[in-house]
Design a protein around this nucleic acid. Structure first.
Length: 514
RNA sequence: GGCCGAUUCGUCUAGCGGUUAGGACAUCGCCCUUUCACGGCGGUAACACGGGUUCGAUUCCCGUAUCGGUCACCA
C-alpha cells in the first residue's frame, strides 16, 4: 500500500448480459458513495468481452437504471456514448490494448500460447479427477502434458500461429509463491499460487477474459479502489499476480470485496427465482427479454421510490454505526465509510424495503403524488380533478406503502356503497343510527355553508346533540351508511371530498337499503 | 472435494475485553382515534458449539459445525 495521496477513481464494470441485478445496483451505489465521499470520480465501464452472452439493450438498461437510482457517472459509457479521457469504455472496443499487454507477457516469459481444444481440456480434467487430484487445473504441473508453447518447439508454435490454428494465451502461474492481498473489508488474504491455475488471459477469439481486461483497464484508467462483489475474492490473488507481472504493482488499486445479498429464507444467494416466489422485484427496472419476450418486474414499475431503494440497499452490508435509519443520498455520502462494510452476507428482506418506501412516500408532496391517483381514476373511467386527487392523496398517503395503493384505498370515496358490511350492520345499525342518519341528511339539505371537514363536523355534532343522540354511539353506523364499510380514513374529510350532493345521496340510499 | 470467506434477536444491524448486549423491520400489547391505518409507548426475541488466552470474553486465538463464494476460452 502506498502512502501517496492518490485521486480516488472507482469504476462500476457490469457485463451487458441482461438486466442489472439488485446486488449490482448496490455495488454501483457503494462505488458511487465512496467516490463522492472522497471527492473522486465514478466511472462506468462495459465489460462485454463475451460475445456469446451479449444481450441487446442491456447496456442501455444499465445506464438508465443507474440514472434512475441517482448514481451519476463522471466518466465512461453514457446514454450519449463514451465520455472521458480513457475512452473507449466498452472492452470490446479495446481489444488491441489487451492483445498488446498479453503479447508483452508472452515475450517476457510470464504467459504462453496454448493450443488445447475444449475436448482436450475436458479429457485432462476428467483424468485428474479420476486420479483423485485435489483440483483439476491447468497449472505448473499439468501444463507440461498439454499442447502449448512450453511443450513445443518455438518453430512449431510459430507455424501453428501463422497457420491460423486457434490458440489462447495463458498466464504462467508460478509453482510456489504466496500471494498476499490486503482487502479493505476483509484484511489480509493469503493464497498460495498453486491454487491459482494458468488462467486464460486472451481467448481464441482475440478478446481478453475478465481477469486480463479488468487489470489492464483498471491500471490504464487509474482506478484507485476496486469495489466489487465477494464472488471475485477467489480470483483477486490472480489479479495481484497480473499487476505484478505487468509491472504495475506499485500503483495497484486497493480492493474491497462486498458481502453478497442472500435469499430471504433458505440457503444461497439471492436469485430471480426468490423474487418471483416472494412476489417482489430483483431488478431496478422492468426488463423485457429480447429473445423470449419474458417480462421481469422492476422496482421502479412496482412503485418503489428510488430514494427508498437506495436507502434500503445502502444498509444491506454497511452501517455507519449510528442509529440513524433514514438517509438521503447526500447523507449517505457524508456517512459512508468502506471500513464499516460488513463481512457477512445479508438476507434480502423486502418488508424493510416496503417500510422505507412508506417513509419516503409520506415525504412526497400531495401534488407530486396526485397524478398517480388521477391516472388510475381515469383508467377506471372516473372523473378526477387534480384538486380532488390531491385531497385524496392528503387523506390516504400515510396509510399506504406505494403511490399506486392510494387509489384502491380511496375506493369508498370514488364509489358510493353498493353493499354494506354485514357485521357492522348487525352490531351498529339500530333505531338511533337510523334517526342520526335521517336528521343529518335533513340538516345537510338546508345547510348552505362551506362543505369542509371542520364545518361538517360541527354541523354533525350540533345536529346530533339537538336530536338527543350520543355521537359516539352512531358514528360507526354513519360510516357504514356513507361508505358501506366499518373502517376507513377520517370520515369528515371523506365527506368533504365526496361533496355535499354525494353525501346526501349516500345517506338516502342507506336509509333505503339498510 | 480443494481453496477462500462468513457466523449478535425471525430479518437488517450497533458492539471493536468489563454493557441491564443498543436501534430498526416484522410480531404482540397498550395509548391516541367515531373505525382502520398512521403515530406514540411498551413487550417477546440474539452473541452457532467446544476449547484456550485473560481477573474477566459477544469481543482475541485454535478447533468443530453450519452457511456462502469459487474452482470455464462467463463475468
Amino acid at each position: 500500500m502506498s502512502d501517496l495521496v492518490r485521486d480516488v477513481r472507482v469504476r462500476f464494470a457490469p457485463s451487458p448480459t441482461g438486466p442489472l441485478h439488485i446486488g449490482g445496483v448496490r455495488t454501483a451505489l457503494y462505488n458511487y458513495l465512496f467516490a463522492r465521499k472522497m471527492g473522486g470520480k465514478m466511472l462506468l465501464r462495459i465489460e462485454d468481452t463475451d460475445q456469446n452472452r451479449f444481450v441487446p439493450g442491456a447496456e442501455a438498461y444499465i445506464i438508465e437504471a443507474l440514472n434512475w437510482v441517482g448514481i451519476q457517472i463522471d466518466e465512461g459509457q453514457t446514454a450519449n456514448g463514451p465520455s472521458g479521457p480513457d475512452a473507449p469504455y466498452r472492452q470490446s472496443e479495446r481489444r488491441d490494448i489487451y492483445q498488446r499487454e498479453a503479447l508483452r507477457l508472452v515475450e517476457e516469459g510470464k504467459a504462453y500460447y496454448a493450443f488445447d481444444t475444449a475436448d482436450e481440456l475436458d479429457a485432462m480434467r476428467k483424468r485428474l479427477e479420476e486420479a483423485n487430484a485435489p483440483a483439476a487445473q491447468y497449472n505448473a504441473i499439468t501444463r507440461m502434458q498439454m499442447r502449448n508453447a512450453l511443450t513445443m518447439s518455438a518453430a512449431d508454435v510459430k507455424a501453428r500461429i501463422d497457420g491460423g490454428e486457434p490458440h489462447v494465451i495463458r498466464l504462467k502461474t508460478p509453482r510456489k509463491e504466496e500471494v498476499r492481498l490486503n482487502d479493505i473489508v476483509r484484511g489480509w488474504v493469503n493464497v498460495h499460487s498453486s491454487a491459482i491455475d494458468d488462467k486464460v488471459l486472451l481467448k481464441s477469439d482475440g478478446l481478453p477474459t475478465y481477469h486480463l481486461a479488468n487489470v489492464v483497464d483498471d491500471h490504464l484508467m487509474n482506478i484507485s479502489h476496486v469495489i466489487r462483489g465477494e464472488e471475485w475474492l477467489p480470483s483477486a490473488p490472480l489479479h495481484v499476480l497480473l499487476y505484478r507481472y505487468l509491472g504495475w504493482e506499485a500503483t495497484m488499486p486497493q480492493f474491497a470485496h462486498l458481502p453478497l445479498l442472500l435469499k430471504p429464507e433458505g440457503n444461497g444467494k439471492l436469485s430471480k427465482r426468490d423474487a418471483d416466489l416472494g412476489g417482489f422485484p430483483i431488478f431496478p427496472l422492468q426488463w423485457t427479454d429480447p429473445f423470449s419476450g419474458t417480462v421481469a418486474r422492476g422496482f421502479r414499475e412496482d412503485g418503489y421510490l428510488p430514494e427508498a431503494l437506495v436507502n434500503f440497499l445502502s444498509l444491506l452490508g454497511w452501517n455507519p454505526g449510528t442509529e440513524q435509519e433514514l438517509f438521503s443520498m447526500n447523507e449517505l455520502i457524508e456517512a459512508f465509510d468502506l471500513e464499516k462494510i460488513h463481512k457477512g452476507g445479508a438476507r434480502f428482506d423486502i418488508e424493510k424495503a416496503r417500510w422505507f418506501n412508506h417513509q419516503y412516500l409520506r415525504q412526497r408532496s400531495n401534488a407530486e403524488l396526485a397524478p398517480a391517483v388521477q391516472v388510475q381514476a381515469q383508467a377506471a373511467g372516473l372523473d378526477c380533478s387534480p384538486e380532488k386527487a390531491e385531497q385524496v392523496v392528503a387523506l390516504l398517503k400515510e396509510r399506504v406503502n406505494f403511490a399506486h395503493d392510494i387509489f384502491p384505498e380511496a375506493h369508498t370515496i370514488f364509489y358510493a356503497p353498493e353493499a354494506y358490511d354485514e357485521t357492522i350492520r348487525a352490531a351498529k345499525w339500530n333505531d338511533d343510527a337510523r334517526r342520526a342518519v335521517t336528521v343529518f341528511r335533513d340538516a345537510l339539505l338546508t345547510y348552505n355553508g362551506p362543505f369542509e371537514a371542520d364545518a361538517i363536523k360541527h354541523l354533525l355534532s350540533d345536529t346530533l346533540m339537538q336530536a338527543g343522540i350520543k355521537q359516539g354511539k352512531v358514528m360507526q353506523a354513519m360510516r357504514l351508511a356513507l361508505t358501506g364499510s366499518g373502517v376507513g380514513p377520517d370520515l369528515m374529510l371523506t365527506m368533504q371530498i365526496v361533496g355535499k350532493e354525494g353525501v346526501v345521496a349516500r345517506l338516502e340510499n342507506a336509509l333505503d337499503k339498510l
